[in-house]
Every structure is written in structure tokens, then in C-alpha cells.
Design a protein around this nucleic acid. Structure first.
Lengths: 128, 128
DNA sequence: TACTGTGTATCATTACTGTGATACACTAAA
DNA sequence: TTTAGTGTATCACAGTAATGATACACAGTA
């Protein structure tokens, strides 16, 4: 389980954890039955308070993505995503990977790229 | 000045304002001398407290992007970005636009796409 | 049974975000 | 000079995020 926090993004830590685990499930890197890192373990890895990880896990359970078993650990629940959808996610991942590479070769930093995307989503949203 | 807030992103409102204005300057949509909306006006438009806009404007001034003139308004400062860089931003914008369109045609939502990008940036960061 | 690893619960504390209200100070134009 | 539009400065308040510490409860295994 590789999670990386971006302290400068302004996004709360617990949300970053939620989104990255959610993403791992969406692309099929985590499947039903997989055990997540123990709360204290992950907290230590990320150099973060255990309470913060608890909040993230609670959130994920609320979304029905994982299941917390008292004393036994946290486990990934059965995904309600169709296989075709998983496949599409992986295809999309390739597209994204290529775009990021291209942007970087153009000399753009991650923050600048991020703003470009955010702006584009806003554009589309207002146009639709 | 079109600013759109995303309440579900977890990013503080004042930061969203900062980033979107910064982006407008980066792509040349706002240039030196342009007047920004008045604090109260923008606050009203976004249905947000004036204090929040003040915080955003202060932040932008701190970054040297705008200049607050007491009683007279807020104005865009001279950009320290080379023209070639501005051009690259616009080229990049096209790339991004196309990618977003493609992702949407694949049936991905904005949140899902956002997670894909975030994940990709993290990948690259750990690989580099 | 005892031990270890795990989730659960609570508390106090600090910092940040955002609101709402109020008053003051400066600028530019009528 | 007056007025309307603007930035500046404070307060008090509520909600959330995050920390650090402590204790308890359950599960699985030796």
C-alpha cells in the first residue's frame, strides 16, 4: 500500500488517504478481501496521528468500499464496479499517463498542470 | 472574471480563488493593469464572506501576482513569465482540453479523472 | 488461557477556515 | 467638497482538521 501525502495541496490528510485508497480499488489494484494496513501501522508510515487514519477508514467504510472488523483488521469489500468499468479505468490510466508525460516534457510543473486541469473541468462544467 | 468553487474537493475556498486567478494570469487571460473584481463584489458573486476573498487577494499579493491599492482596487501586476512560457501554457491547455474530452467520452466522472491524475503525479514523483 | 495484533472510544488542545458584523481610511470622480 | 466605491482592520463565533495520549474491547493464535 503506497500512499503519498501532498502537504501543499490544501486537501485534508484524511481525504488524501481516502482518495488514494479509493483509486486503488477503482483500478483493481486492491480487490475484495485484501487487507489494508493496520491503523497504527499506516499512521506511523505516514507520520500522522492514528486518529487521522481512523477518520479516513471510517469514511471509506461509510462509502461501502471497505469493512472494519473489530480486532481483525480492515478489508476491501466486494466492488460494485462492473469488469468493463475496471477495464476502462485502466485504459484511461494510460491516457492520463501519456498526457502527464507530455506536459512535463513541455516544461510544466505539477502545480501548473493541476491548475490547467481544474480550469478545464470548470470550463466544461459551465459549458455543459 | 469567472470563478467556480468546488465545494466537494476539500480545498479551502480562498485557495480555490487564488489558484483560479493565478491560472488566468498564467495563460494570459489576465494581464498587467487589469482590475480584479472588488472584494465585496466577488464575495457576493461567490456567496462567500468578504473576509475569505480578502484572504485570497492577500495571498495573491504575497505571491507578487496582484497589487492592492487602498481605495482604488486590485490590479494585476507585471508578469515575470516569459512570452515563450505563456505560449507553452496555451499549447498545454489544448492538450489538457483534449484529454479531458477523451476521458469524459470514456464515461469517467470528474472526480474519478481527478484521482487518476493525482495518482499519476504521485507515481512519477516516487519514480523520479 | 495468555499474548499479540487489531479496531474503538474519549479527551484536551492547537491551528486553520469561514462567517457576520462593524468601523475606519483612502481614491477618484461628480 | 461631497459622494460612491474601494481596501483595511478588528472582533467574536462556529466548525473542522489534526495531534497526542490513554484506555478499552475483540480476534486469532500459540
Amino acid at each position: 500500500m503506497i500512499i503519498r501525502l501532498n502537504p501543499s495541496s490544501g486537501v485534508p490528510i484524511y481525504l488524501q488517504i481516502v482518495e488514494q485508497i479509493r483509486h486503488s480499488i477503482e483500478i483493481g489494484a486492491l480487490v475484495e478481501g485484501d487487507q489494508l494496513p493496520a491503523i497504527r501501522t499506516l499512521a506511523e508510515e505516514l507520520v500522522v496521528s492514528p486518529n487521522t487514519v481512523v477518520k479516513a477508514y471510517d469514511d471509506l467504510e461509510q462509502q461501502g468500499l471497505i469493512r472494519l472488523r473489530h480486532g481483525a483488521g480492515a478489508y476491501v469489500e466486494k466492488s460494485n464496479l462492473a469488469k468493463s468499468r475496471l477495464r476502462r479505468f485502466r485504459e484511461a490510466s494510460v491516457v492520463v499517463k501519456e498526457t502527464v508525460r507530455k506536459l512535463r516534457s513541455m516544461g510544466l510543473g505539477d502545480d501548473e498542470s493541476r491548475r490547467l486541469f481544474e480550469a478545464e473541468w470548470i470550463e466544461e462544467a459551465t459549458t455543459r
